[in-house]
Design a protein around this nucleic acid. Structure first.
Length: 581
RNA sequence: CGGGGAGUGGCGCAGUCUGGUAGCGCACCCGGCUGGGGGCCGGGCGGCCGCAGGUUCAAAUCCUGUCUCCCCGACCA
């Protein structure tokens, strides 16, 4: 049996080729059962498929096959960063604490800190804004030195309160973080847009389903942020989606679904509600929808003043949106404070309240009476009309619900994992760290910065979450640890085995990354392992097909089977590979 | 940080209540059979039962302390 010499195919990942990948020699410790404590699908499958192993809470080692996937994602990210003019560098993980003290970001609970032998405070990198900015301060002198996009792939250390779901939320992980340095807001805008383009391409190339959503800037500070979300069951965030709209639920805004209100009488009426302290209880007892109630959420601002936040009974206050609306930090009022300022918790309301009242914009103010707490034990008021019975300011502070409307379309809400984010930092770091440059007119100004992160491990895990089936992982071809999983069914010395050896060499020569299952194992075990690992193409060399002059090929996704003629097999396999998702 | 659960061989577990010197399945090693969906037979290796202290003639088992891990929530630059 002779194999036709295949034309050499050029593949994007050609530079990553590794030589010997015979399963008989390869470290791929597959397990039949998932770890008992694993919950998330990707966690179970990554361990079962031999991709990763845990060494402590939120601390994971990448085994050879898992690392291949990680590195493939890294390479995609690198290529797209380079394509927008990014310059790859490397900054340390261990930092002098002083730099973080100067930027005002020292002492977070999530920050790992330590002392060196001289007793100097050190920190482990949570991110690298402080470090790049320090370098920029040292090195950037003039507008002629700008703009720049600098990036690296480096370990981040975060003492997460609760690591979870395998590789999805860890205390140590590799992130590609890039930083743009510009002269002015316009320059930053351009760098930000370049990153948006690069991120779109990275995620498309990685084969993921993903959304770009509007996001909270959080404690990064700055002027604007988008997040890249991969929908999956193990996701930690909820994204709100409608045609032409995508936002993190933390900042999402939509029109509330209407609720029918009873007509309001001329004045509020007292109703007795003994012991009824929840919206559900009151609504049921009074026979009105819970949306016809107003819920009071008293908060104490950082300046000590009280604000009574009111949302519809079927809505929830979104604390991030509330913080944005208040432009101020706050905490929920304590029971004793509520008692003192308003009335018994469970019966508080806006009528007669001597404080600022913030009414969510989902509340109708065009007539119709609401039920509110009466600020006295066992008393509610019905027929309350905002504006008539109490004064208020309006703000959008409620959490969006599935079915709410954006541009007339009902939104849906999906769990998703954040795989990347882009932030406009502005001068948040350049000012405190003195990263200034001289403008054309000789004036010293702070550099305008942006910061952009993406997590290869999360991309890998999200891909598993999105495409796995009963049998195991089903990789998108661009980030699969291998291109082809070659299974020989022949015993040592058989014809199948000899042909497999030749085919293996030819596949590699053709530029296809091939894992060769040359173990002396039963077919069932080989197939089960192949499906668990999830390489997109499986080529099987078996006696019957070989006698017919064919190899069997199975596409992992959908498990569709096909045959290729032994003559020209490599070219045919390469062609199949090219057409994979 | 609040709530819940768990630490026994590489993985999954039983044994703990009722103390007597550790067991099962898979994996692994050796030999043989089988050879298209985790197959079969025989023979083996491997664990100071998370750690420390205590009670006892005797502790995986009872007591005290401690460490670790997981899940839900809070948190999440």
């Amino acid at each position: 049996m002779e194999l036709a010499v295949a034309p050499r195919v050029t593949l994007a990942t050609a530079t990553l080729r590794a030589a010997m990948t015979r399963l008989s020699e390869y470290l791929l410790p597959t397990e039949r059962e998932p770890p008992a404590d694993a919950e998330a699908l990707s966690h179970k499958l990554m361990v079962r498929a031999g991709l990763v192993r845990q060494i402590g809470a939120g601390l994971w080692s990448w085994l050879p096959a898992g690392w291949r996937t990680h590195q493939r994602v890294v390479q995609i990210v690198r290529e797209e960063m380079n394509a927008i003019g990014g310059q790859e560098m490397l900054m340390p993980v261990l930092h002098p604490a002083d730099i973080w003290k100067r930027s005002g970001r020292y002492g977070f609970d999530e920050m790992f800190t330590l002392k060196d032998r001289k007793g100097a405070d050190m920190v482990l990198a949570m991110t690298h804004e402080e470090i790049v900015t320090t370098h920029a301060a040292q090195v950037i002198r003039s507008y002629r030195d700008l703009p720049k996009i600098l990036y690296h792939f480096q370990v981040k250390e975060r003492d997460e309160p609760r690591p979870r779901a395998g590789v999805l939320r860890t205390r140590e992980f590799i992130m590609k973080d890039s930083y743009s340095l510009d002269c002015d807001p316009e320059g930053l805008e351009l760098s930000y847009e370049k990153h948006a383009v690069a991120y779109d391409r990275m995620l498309d190339r990685s084969g993921l389903e993903w959304y770009k959503v509007k996001a909270d800037v959080g404690m990064m500070g700055g002027h604007g942020a988008d997040e890249y979300m991969a929908p999956c069951a193990a996701g930690e965030n909820d994204v709100v989606l409608a045609p032409g709209y995508a936002a993190n639920i933390e900042v999402a805004s939509a029109d509330a679904q209407p609720v029918s209100l009873p007509p309001a009488p001329d004045a509020p009426e007292e109703v007795t509600t003994p012991g009824l302290t929840t919206v559900g209880q009151v609504a049921t007892t009074l026979g009105v929808p819970s949306g016809a109630l107003l819920k009071a959420f008293p908060v104490v601002l950082d300046d000590g003043s009280f604000v009574l936040v009111m949302v519809r009974g079927d809505h929830r206050v979104n604390e991030i949106k509330l913080r944005l609306a208040l432009q101020c930090g706050f905490r929920a009022a304590r029971a004793d404070e509520i008692e003192q300022r308003l009335g018994p918790p469970g019966f508080i309301g806006p009528v007669g309240a001597q404080m600022r009242i913030l009414l969510d914009q989902g509340v109708r103010t065009d007539g119709g009476g609401y039920v509110v707490g009466g600020n006295r034990p066992d008393i509610h008021l019905s027929g309350v009309v905002p504006g008539r019975d109490f004064n208020f300011e309006t703000a959008d502070v409620r959490e969006v619900l599935a079915g709410d409307l954006v541009n007339g379309h009902a939104v849906r809400i999906e769990p998703a994992i954040e795989v990347g984010n882009i932030f406009k930092l502005g001068t948040r770091y350049s000012e405190p760290l003195g990263a200034n440059f001289l403008t054309q007119s000789g004036v010293s100004e702070p550099i305008w910065m942006g910061s952009y992160g993406i997590g290869p491990a999360r991309i890998a895990a999200a891909a598993i979450e999105q495409f796995a089936d009963e049998q195991g992982i089903s990789w998108p071809r661009s980030i699969s640890p291998f291109d082809v999983h070659l299974v020989t069914l022949g015993k040592a010395g058989s014809e199948e085995r000899e042909v497999s050896e030749l085919l293996y060499e030819e596949l590699i020569a053709a530029g296809l990354d091939t894992l060769y299952d040359d173990r002396d194992a039963n077919p069932g075990e080989k197939f089960a392992d192949a499906e668990l690992l999830g390489v997109p193409l499986r080529v099987t060399v078996g006696r019957k097909a070989l006698a017919a002059g064919e190899f069997e090929v199975q596409l992992r996704r959908g498990q569709e089977k096909a045959s290729v003629a032994v003559d020209g097999a490599v070219a045919a396999i390469a062609e199949l590979w090219r057409r994979l998702p």
